[in-house]
Design a protein around this nucleic acid. Structure first.
Lengths: 231, 231
DNA sequence: ACGTGTATAATTGTATACAATTATACACGT
DNA sequence: ACGTGTATAATTGTATACAATTATACACGT
């Protein structure tokens, strides 16, 4: 969908800035100057400008005309909200996928699960990394199977947003095992053409991931308050 | 949120192009050349480029590197999907609003409803226009009241997308009357702090709007097939 | 007539110049 | 010491030049 992003300078600046904002390299309200960033990345202002304009649309940057671009970032409350919204939409997605999934896509999902289980019992450094990647792949195929480019688009966006947080979650081995079991159950429901069950399972799956991130309502409320005091 | 869009050249080009794409001035797969559009609007390539890059992120334009920008537009199926998704999220929004709405926002909503009812019994050319604007305002305040910038962002985006279709729907007087009644019921549920009822009502409200657009599943399936044959 | 190769044109990608706007420093009066 | 006005610097907004890439036209051989 956006593989080209790697080839153009703008694409690289865009991805780099998004990553840096989400991982906290720049902190909230920090000004992003076109020249400064251009010098840091060895490009001119043009690609930087274009990247900043795109980031604004993603909500990660706020641009004040003739003044500057400022980091907006995402708060713990944002992550909490995204998971709540995703939970509903992933449910919807699983239900729609039940009606539209192709044989090819079912095979892809089976393969992802097989590989996930394999990597999980393996020891080694990049094991967690690969499980995370496969987790992403599973959801991606499911989005495609929904046969709705709109739903796919929204869910992909959210998925990118919480990528960082997710890496931590799946990293915990116990959670990873449960997560893959849940994936398997969702796939089985889809194969049985039980849309209602698939929706329910996908819905729960996301809420479980959220719980594992310790993003309970209380925690979010507390962190949110701290943030407000800071300002 | 994006009032500045009116002041900069890029902003104006962006809005103009979006409007023209959604209203069918450009047809699917049409190439949008930077120079041509710049000449038409009397600006240089730079603002046009930036606008095209933003439209790509909105999914209305597909950009192939070193080649060109092509209109993507939205299909009847897209509109159908958006309404289905919106229905869930507007429900969620109403529920969250029940917990976070301020006195000020309740007053705003009351005012919008009062004005809506007033304009509705008035005769005149721009009556429909104003009712549509007030309908937009009602939802906007509700989005803000959800106290979730994420949910607000997603719903606003979808709202813009189906703006055109909505103008037609509310234009029918009978539907407009029912629509405002439904708004009133939602507000009452929120004031009674009945989150579950508010969610249910907002959910139904969007589905009703959709039905009125004759976007039933059968219609979408048929139109979608026609479109595929075209390509 | 058809396909292939090559020169030319058209278009996008990036850098940069200049204009417009905003931020900053500092003199000056009180 | 403090606020105000003004000159200067810094930054963004837009246009344009040049490079890189892709599209087009057309000659040539078969």
């Amino acid at each position: 969908m956006e593989a080209y992003q790697d080839r153009s300078l703008r694409g690289r600046v865009f991805q780099r800035l998004r990553e840096d904002i989400l991982s906290g390299v720049y902190h909230e309200h920090e000004e992003l100057r076109e020249i400064t960033i251009g010098e840091e990345l060895g490009v001119s202002r043009t690609p930087v400008r274009e990247a900043l304009r795109q980031l604004e649309l993603e909500g990660l940057v706020t641009i004040i005309p003739n003044k500057g671009a400022y980091v907006t970032g995402i708060t713990p409350k944002d992550v909490y909200d995204i998971y709540k919204i995703r939970s509903m939409l992933e449910g919807m997605c699983a239900r729609w996928a039940t009606e539209h999934i192709t044989e090819r896509q079912i095979e892809e999902l089976e393969e992802v699960l097989l590989l996930s289980e394999f990597h999980l019992q393996k020891k080694g450094g990049e094991q967690a990394e690969q499980v995370t990647e496969l987790d992403g792949k599973f959801h991606k195929v499911l989005y495609e199977a929904s046969n709705s480019r709109i739903l796919e688009h929204v869910l992909s966006d959210f998925h990118k947003y919480v990528q960082m947080a997710r890496a931590i979650s799946v990293g915990e081995k116990n959670r990873a095992v449960r997560s893959i079991q849940e994936h398997r159950e969702i796939l089985e429901a889809i194969k049985d053409r039980d849309g209602e069950l698939a929706e329910e399972l996908a819905n729960r799956h996301i809420l479980n991931v959220m719980e594992n991130l310790h993003l309970s309502e209380q925690v979010v409320r507390r962190e949110n308050r701290e943030e407000q005091e800071e300002v």
